[in-house]
C-alpha cells in the first residue's frame, strides 16, 4: 500500500520571480500511474523533483503512506527516479549500476546477485550484467535506468520524461513495456511527459499542468473527450479552437455559424478534426480547402474561414477534396468555453 499525497505545494525559485509550482495538490493511489502532462515550463519536472527530494518546496506538504517526506533528503526517501538522460554511471558496468544501491543498504552479495538478475530479467536484459553501459543502445540504457530504480523496490516510482531521448519507434515499444512492468509490480508511479501520446496511452489519470497549476485531473479518455478548459482542449490532441460571438443561440465567426444554446457573448468553440464533417456541395457554413494531406488510413483537410482562420478536418476519403474548393462544415460534437471554463458540450 503506497499512496503519495501532495498538499498545497508551491515552489518559488530563489530569484522570487518564478513561481514554478503554484499551490499544487494531488493524491496518487496505490498502484496507480499518474502522468504529469504540460508544455515546457509548466512546472511538471519541478514537481517531480520535489517528490524525489531534489528540490525543496517553498510551502506545502508531501507524504508517502502518511509519512511526511517534505524535508527528507533524497537518499532517505522511498522513491526511485528514472531520469530523462538515463544518468547511468558510465564508469561502472550494468551489474555495478544496479548493485550500487543494494550495497549501500548492506544487502548480502548473494542476495544482490539474485535481485539484480531478477530485475535484469524483468526488463529483458538477461545476461547483460557485465556489459559496459556506454556500449548499450539508447533503449537498453533506458531499461538499465529503470532496472536500477526497480531493484530497490521503491514505494513510488518517478519517471522524468524517460523516453524523450529515444526515437519514435523505440519510444512506443518501451512505453508499452514500462506500463506492463508497472502493472505487474503494481507500483505507484508518477510520470512526467510533454508527449500527450505517452500520457494518453499509459496513464490511469492525467494531470494537465500550466504555469505551475493544475488545469484538469482526469482519466485519459475524459481529458481527451471532455477537456474542461480551452487550454486543455488545445493542448491534448488536435483541436479547432474558433473564437467568435454568440447571439440568439447562434455562434458565428467569419461567415461560419452553428447553433450554440448559451447566453449571448463571446465564446470559444472547440471541435475535434474527426468531429467535423465536410461536404463539397450542400447547404451550410462555408470554408475553403487550403491543403489536403493523405495519410493513407485517413486524410487531413486544412480549411480557411473567410477571415483566414485555419481549421482542420479529418476525412476518410481525402481524394474527394482539392485545394480551392468551398465546402460545408457540419460539426458532430462541439464544446464551448467562456472565461476559461466549459459552458456547453454536445
Amino acid at each position: 500500500m503506497s499512496v503519495l499525497k501532495i498538499k498545497d505545494v508551491s515552489k518559488i525559485f530563489a530569484s522570487g520571480q518564478v513561481r514554478a509550482v503554484d499551490n499544487f495538490s494531488l493524491e496518487v493511489a496505490d498502484g496507480e500511474l499518474v502522468c504529469l502532462l504540460g508544455p515546457s515550463g509548466s512546472g511538471k519536472s519541478t514537481l517531480l523533483r520535489m517528490v524525489g527530494g531534489f528540490e525543496r518546496p517553498t510551502s506545502g506538504v508531501m507524504t508517502i503512506d502518511g509519512e511526511d517526506i517534505t524535508h527528507v533528503p533524497p537518499e532517505k526517501r522511498p522513491t526511485g527516479m528514472v531520469f530523462q538522460s538515463h544518468a547511468l554511471w558510465t564508469h561502472m558496468n550494468v551489474f555495478k549500476n544496479l548493485a550500487f544501491g543494494l550495497k549501500l543498504r548492506k544487502v548480502a552479495p548473494d542476495e544482490i546477485k539474485r535481485r539484480v538478475d531478477a530485475v535484469l530479467d524483468l526488463v529483458g536484459l538477461n545476461g547483460y550484467g557485465t556489459r559496459h553501459v556506454a556500449k548499450l543502445s539508447g533503449g537498453q540504457q533506458q531499461r538499465v535506468a529503470l532496472a536500477r530504480s526497480l531493484v530497490l523496490e521503491p514505494k513510488i516510482l518517478l519517471l522524468d520524461e524517460p523516453f524523450a531521448s529515444l526515437d519514435q519507434h523505440l519510444r512506443e515499444r518501451l512505453r508499452e513495456e514500462v506500463r506492463d512492468i508497472q502493472q505487474r509490480l503494481k507500483i505507484t508511479t508518477l510520470f512526467v511527459t510533454h508527449g500527450q501520446d505517452e500520457a494518453l496511452s499509459m496513464a490511469d489519470r492525467i494531470v494537465v499542468m500550466r504555469d505551475g497549476r493544475t488545469e484538469q485531473i482526469d482519466r485519459p479518455e475524459v481529458i481527451y473527450r471532455e477537456p474542461q478548459t480551452p487550454f486543455v482542449a488545445g493542448f491534448i490532441g488536435t483541436m479547432n479552437l474558433i473564437e467568435g460571438n454568440v447571439a440568439n443561440g447562434m455562434f458565428s465567426k467569419a461567415g461560419y455559424s452553428t447553433p450554440l444554446p448559451v447566453s449571448d457573448g463571446p465564446a470559444i468553440l472547440a471541435i475535434r478534426p474527426e468531429a467535423l464533417d465536410l461536404a463539397v456541395t450542400g447547404e451550410g457554413s462555408q470554408g475553403k480547402v487550403h491543403r489536403v494531406t493523405d495519410y493513407g488510413t485517413h486524410g487531413l483537410v486544412d480549411l480557411e474561414l473567410n477571415d483566414a482562420t485555419r481549421i482542420k478536418a479529418m476525412v476518410p476519403h481525402p481524394d474527394l477534396f482539392k485545394a480551392g474548393q468551398t465546402v460545408t462544415l457540419t460539426p458532430k460534437a462541439i464544446a464551448a468555453y467562456r472565461d476559461g471554463v466549459v459552458i456547453h458540450r454536445a
Binding site: 533524497p74 526511485g80 554511471w89 550500487f100 536500477r148 530504480s149
Partner: peptide, 26 residues
Amino acid sequence: DRRMEEAARDVGAGPFRVFWSITLPQ
C-alpha cells in the same frame, strides 16, 4: 553530469559517498 550525482543520491548515497563513488571517478 549532475543527474548522475542525483541518481546516486536517489539510490541512497549521501553527499560524501556520491563524491567518492560518482563524481571523483567521473
